[in-house]
């Protein structure tokens, strides 16, 4: 029973307690707050599992943006809390509990039976790390070995954005999304929104930049920059561009298109799509990441903002 194990057990119990509370509590708003806390605790677990990249992503995406999204939704839906009262009966709840417990038991059995010399692709990845010219193996996997997944990743985010925008009313199409805030421009939030973003942008770019060799990367950096943009708009100092804006659409589309262009260029220079010529891997990867940054920042922020709600000021 080393000290580390004790900490792990404590953390695990804390997380399970928080998850149970989030599910069981009656009031939805409290449940959302519980979920945000749960997300941040989960970041600690990733640190304990020595996976810093994932910890950063979880903190930024799981705790931060998802939390903002859910808190916004919970605040607006608080009034409908009373209407939906019919909680399923005892029998349904017990049956659901039994089924969930069976699934958990099966999974636990599988976890305990995982093979001991755990099969891993780490040696293979480490061997070929040199040719990708990137120090951080996770970034190497993301942008070299399995670059198709990352491209599809960006396309998933864009399609989700199209889906969210398709939910606008026809009369608001081409208008601007809105954050439901009632901040006054002289208040403390405006002051906060003037001080934090510059530092935030530096931190975001820094995380994006060191992603090549140390834990970090474009997703985490883009999330931080998106958060800063949301903060500024939330404080009322700026507002979202209209959906039909040309530069907005070009920037949104630029990331994947540049990625594909470099990918197809790979046929000529390195004999396969998404292959990098020897020696030029790092600059190309950086070019792709730089192209993807604006796409991700805009897309993630607009996903939180939701469908366009009002016509652009003529």
């Amino acid at each position: 029973m080393t000290l580390a194990l004790a900490v792990d057990i404590g953390l695990a119990l804390l997380i399970l307690a928080m998850a149970a509370w989030t599910i069981a509590v009656r009031d939805t708003f409290a449940s959302v707050i519980g979920f945000v806390t749960y997300g941040l605790l989960l970041t600690l677990v990733w640190v304990r599992l020595a996976l810093p990249d994932v910890a950063l992503t979880e903190a930024a995406m799981g705790g931060g943006l998802t939390g903002a999204l859910l808190i916004g939704a919970a605040a607006r839906l608080r009034r409908t809390e009373a209407t939906v009262r019919e909680r399923p009966g005892v029998f349904t709840r017990t049956l659901a509990a039994v089924l969930s417990a069976t699934v958990t038991a099966a999974l636990s059995f599988c976890v305990l039976n995982l093979p001991d010399p755990a099969p891993t692709l780490a040696p293979g990845a480490a061997a070929k790390l040199g040719s990708t010219g990137v120090g951080n193996p996770v970034t190497a996997v993301l942008l070299a070995y399995r670059s198709m997944d990352t491209l599809l990743e960006a396309i998933v985010v864009l399609i989700a954005l199209f889906g969210v925008w398709s939910l606008a009313h026809d009369r608001f199409w081409g208008g601007c999304p809105q954050l439901r805030t009632h901040a006054d421009s002289e208040g403390i939030l405006a002051y906060f929104a003037r001080i934090l973003p510059p530092i935030g942008i530096i931190v975001g770019v820094y995380i994006f930049w060191i992603g090549a060799d140390f834990p970090g990367g474009k997703f985490q950096g883009a999330t931080i920059l998106a958060a800063m943009w949301l903060l500024v708009i939330g404080a009322g100092l700026a507002h979202f561009p209209p959906v039909s804006q040309a530069w907005l659409r070009i920037l949104l589309v630029a990331g994947p298109l540049v990625f594909m262009a470099i990918g197809f260029a790979g046929i000529v220079t390195a004999g396969a799509v998404f292959a990098y010529p020897d020696g030029f891997a790092k600059p190309l990867i950086l070019a792709i990441e730089i192209a993807l940054m604006p796409t991700l920042v805009l897309a993630l922020a607009l996903l939180v903002a939701g469908a366009p709600q009002r016509m652009p000021p003529q």
């Binding site: 599992l49 020595a50 996976l51 994932v54 755990a118 692709l121 780490a122 990845a125 997944d149 997703f219």
Partner: peptide, 23 residues
Amino acid sequence: RRGAAAGMGGDPVPQALLITGIV
């Protein structure tokens, strides 16, 4: 984490898939 080898804290492939999954 179980797949940690060759001097890395964890198998990079699942980490990359994890990040994609979270997004």
